[in-house]
């Protein structure tokens, strides 16, 4: 872990504020750093601002009428807040959107090929990467000719990640990869993420509600609550933190509580003010 801590910071988000539709304040000063070669997790419940943070980095926010009104976002020291998503993909930053968003009427292979849209390094290199994606996701190879709309949820998540890989990214912003998937598939997807991180050196920033899984695979975590970072630290520390255990992992010193108790307790207790 000390190695990644010393590693170069690729992405730096500094105190950003995001407003949707000119009125709805969603992020109220979020700062975070993503080191090269790490898996960084953004944790928090519904509406905490995880997706918005990712979208403000990848600049998909503008197509949803959102706007970064304060703060800076830098990638490799360059201000990227005015770049188009396409320009960012060319710089190696790509987002895998929440809810998979496959191109339903395209085949699995065509879906993957759209990921290579911005590349200009020739057929050969793209084909090599396609093989690599198939090696990581052998199931996609079996189904390459079927329409993506008819594949299962897990396969669609694999398509979405594979499609992002086809752009030869340096940093992948992964939004809620576990959404709507069976626990076993969630493990499978995260194992692949870890593999990609270790073998291909891909840097990940992932937003996840499933704190338990995310903290097992990530190196560093940020916890967001209603648009603010309320806690951050190495994943191992967060896992042991009593508050995190209490609020996000559903455990406490008295052992596992029922979900109802956790919720009411959470409402009563204010923490880290």
């Amino acid at each position: 872990m000390s190695e990644t801590a010393k590693a170069q910071t690729l992405l730096e988000v500094n105190n950003i504020e995001v407003i949707y539709n000119h009125v709805i304040l969603v992020l109220k000063g979020v700062s975070l750093k993503v080191p090269k070669g790490g898996i960084t997790a953004l944790l928090g419940g519904n509406g905490a601002g995880k997706s918005t943070t990712l979208k403000s980095i990848s600049n998909l926010l503008r197509s949803e009428r959102g706007e970064v009104t304060k703060g800076t976002i830098q990638y490799r020291g360059e201000d990227i807040s005015t770049l188009s998503p396409a320009a960012l993909v060319r710089r190696g930053v790509i987002q895998v959107m929440e809810g998979r968003h496959c191109f339903e009427h395209l085949t699995v292979e065509e879906n993957l090929m759209t990921g290579a849209y911005t590349r200009g390094d020739g057929r050969g290199a793209v084909d090599t990467d396609l093989q690599m994606v198939y090696d990581y996701f052998p199931r996609l190879k079996e189904r390459r000719k079927s329409q993506a709309g008819y594949t299962s949820g897990g396969e669609q998540q694999m398509i979405a990640i594979g499609r992002a890989l086809m752009s030869k990214p340096e940093t992948i912003l992964l939004d809620e990869p576990s959404m709507g998937l069976a626990p076993q598939l969630v493990e499978e997807i995260f194992a692949i993420v870890k593999n990609l991180n270790e073998k291909e050196g891909a840097t990940f920033l992932l937003a996840e509600q499933n704190t338990n899984v995310a903290l097992r695979f990530a190196h560093y975590g940020y916890i967001l609550e209603s648009g603010r970072v309320v806690m951050d630290g190495p994943a191992a520390d967060l896992r042991e933190n009593p508050d995190v255990k209490e609020f996000y992992l559903g455990m406490s010193d008295e052992g596992r509580k029922s979900f109802r108790d956790v919720r009411s307790y959470r409402r009563r207790k204010r923490w880290l003010a």
């Binding site: 998909l60 998503p85 396409a86 960012l88 968003h101 339903e104 009427h105 395209l106 759209t114 911005t118």
Partner: peptide, 20 residues
């Protein structure tokens, strides 16, 4: 042509993979 069909299916996702 593929990009055109991708945009037809899901323009948000098309944007995310860098299609203008």
């Amino acid at each position: 042509g593929r990009a055109m069909r991708a945009v037809a299916d899901d323009h948000q996702a098309a944007l995310s993979v860098g299609i203008s």
